[in-house]
């Protein structure tokens, strides 16, 4: 993994053309050849990226104000040109083989089970999207209720006050979207602490306790085509 914080200009040419004006950004070059350009914001999506396989060439520059030009090319003909004006920090590190994502298995599985059948949370609830993105991170489930109103669902293994706070922040952002609002919230967990229930009710957020074992039983009944 090569991580570079640099003042740079980025130009992408491929499916479309995009230009990022000169600014300080984080450049990541991964061992598999992926290249990503990040700003100092947003949880997961780079400003620009090229999936492997790529070829990266770095050419030192004599031009004033330009240290080097990185050119990333994909076999599909996409080109990402990163003009590095000033390198502010740089790190190379051998990270080895990644063991894979170790999420809280129960919480992730709970989310998956509830997404497969949101009516276990409330009658008539239908999934719009899992991991629905907002500016401050993704909401676990975005659903529509029987009346067509949007419902944001936050799923936790243990329901505590910080989970209610998190859902409150999501609701604040989601309710700014005229395509969605009004959006109400439901806090879902295997067990919800009394303080979290009080806080949720005070904020007009619904809460539901779900039985993980029962949900797993339901899952096994829902047969799949493949």
């Amino acid at each position: 993994m090569r991580v570079v914080v640099a003042r740079c200009t980025v130009d992408y040419d491929g499916r479309l053309t995009a230009h990022l004006p000169e600014a300080i950004r984080l450049l990541m070059v991964k061992a598999d050849g992926c290249v990503a350009v990040h700003a100092d914001g947003g949880a997961y999506k780079p400003l620009n990226w090229m999936n492997a396989p790529n070829t990266l060439t770095v050419v030192e520059s004599d031009e004033d104000g330009v240290e080097a030009v990185w050119t990333v090319r994909s076999p599909k003909g996409e080109v990402l040109a990163i003009t590095v004006h000033e390198v502010l920090a740089e790190l190379d590190h051998e990270m080895g083989v990644d063991p894979g994502l170790q999420k809280d298995g129960v919480e992730a599985h709970l989310q998956e089970l509830l997404a497969a059948d949101p009516t276990t949370i409330a009658d008539g609830l239908r999934l719009v999207r899992r991991e629905f993105p907002t500016d401050i991170g993704p909401v676990d489930l975005l659903c529509r209720d029987a009346d067509g109103e949007a419902v944001a669902v936050e799923v936790k293994r243990r329901g505590e006050i910080d989970g209610v706070e998190q859902l409150t922040r999501y609701l604040d952002f989601l309710n700014r979207d005229p395509m969605l609002r009004p959006v109400r919230g439901i806090f879902v967990a295997q067990e919800i602490r009394p303080q979290a229930r009080v806080l949720a009710e005070d904020r007009d957020i619904g809460w539901v306790e779900v039985d993980y074992d029962e949900l797993r039983g339901i899952e096994s009944d829902a047969l799949r085509l493949f």
Binding site: G42, K45, D135, D177, M179
Partner: peptide, 12 residues
């Protein structure tokens, strides 16, 4: 046109 706008979670 706004139906395609990245108003949610876009970093650009």
């Amino acid at each position: 046109a706004r139906r395609a706008v990245a108003g949610r979670g876009g970093t650009l």
